[in-house]
Computed example of a mutant assay.
Amino acid sequence: MTQGRNAAPSHDEKQEPYRWSAEDLCGPRGEAEIVLDGDVYRLRITSRRRLILTK
């Protein structure tokens, strides 16, 4: 039986973290907003190809 993303893992399963491309998240503008508990964070790709996450 396949578990959904919100289902708790069984004791036998090792769960891999989700993985996204920064370019897919940030799009052509190079920025994305991420919301956690009502707070907005900005993820940005710099001109030197580094990631910056700010609140």
Rank of each mutant, 00 (worst) to 15 (best):
R5V: 01
T46C: 09
C26R: 09
R19C: 02
D12E: 13
W20G: 02
G38R: 09
I52K: 15
E33I: 00
T2Y: 08
I34V: 15
N6S: 11
C26G: 02
L51C: 05
I52V: 15
S47I: 03
R29L: 08
V35F: 09
H11S: 11
D39C: 05
L43N: 03
I52T: 13
S10A: 04
R50H: 14
V35Y: 12
E31Q: 14
W20M: 10
D37F: 03
I45G: 03
P28I: 04
D39S: 10
E16A: 13
A7P: 01
W20V: 02
T46K: 04
E16L: 08
N6V: 04
G30H: 07
Q3M: 09
G4Q: 08
A32P: 11
P17E: 11
V40A: 14
N6I: 01
R44N: 04
G27V: 00
V35P: 01
E23W: 05
S47V: 04
N6Q: 10
L43G: 00
T2L: 12
L53E: 11
L51D: 10
G4R: 09
Q3W: 01
E16G: 02
Q15N: 04
E31Y: 07
R42C: 07
K55Q: 14
L51W: 07
E13T: 06
E16Q: 08
K55S: 13
I34R: 00
D37H: 08
A22F: 06
M1K: 10
R44E: 14
A7S: 13
E13H: 05
R48E: 12
T46V: 08
R44P: 04
A22D: 03
A22Y: 05
I52G: 03
S10C: 01
V40E: 13
Q15C: 00
I52H: 12
M1S: 10
R48N: 11
D24W: 05
L36Y: 07
I34W: 02
R5H: 13
R29Q: 15
A32M: 03
I34T: 03
V40H: 13
K14Q: 11
Q3N: 11
I52R: 15
D12R: 10
V35S: 14
T2N: 10
K14E: 14
A7C: 07
P17I: 01
E23M: 03
Y18D: 13
S21R: 12
P9G: 01
C26W: 09
R49E: 14
G38Y: 11
A32G: 05
I45N: 02
R49W: 06
D39G: 00
K14A: 10
S21C: 01
L36Q: 12
P9V: 01
R50G: 10
N6M: 04
P17Q: 10
D37M: 05
R48I: 01
L53G: 06
T2W: 08
G27N: 10
S21P: 00
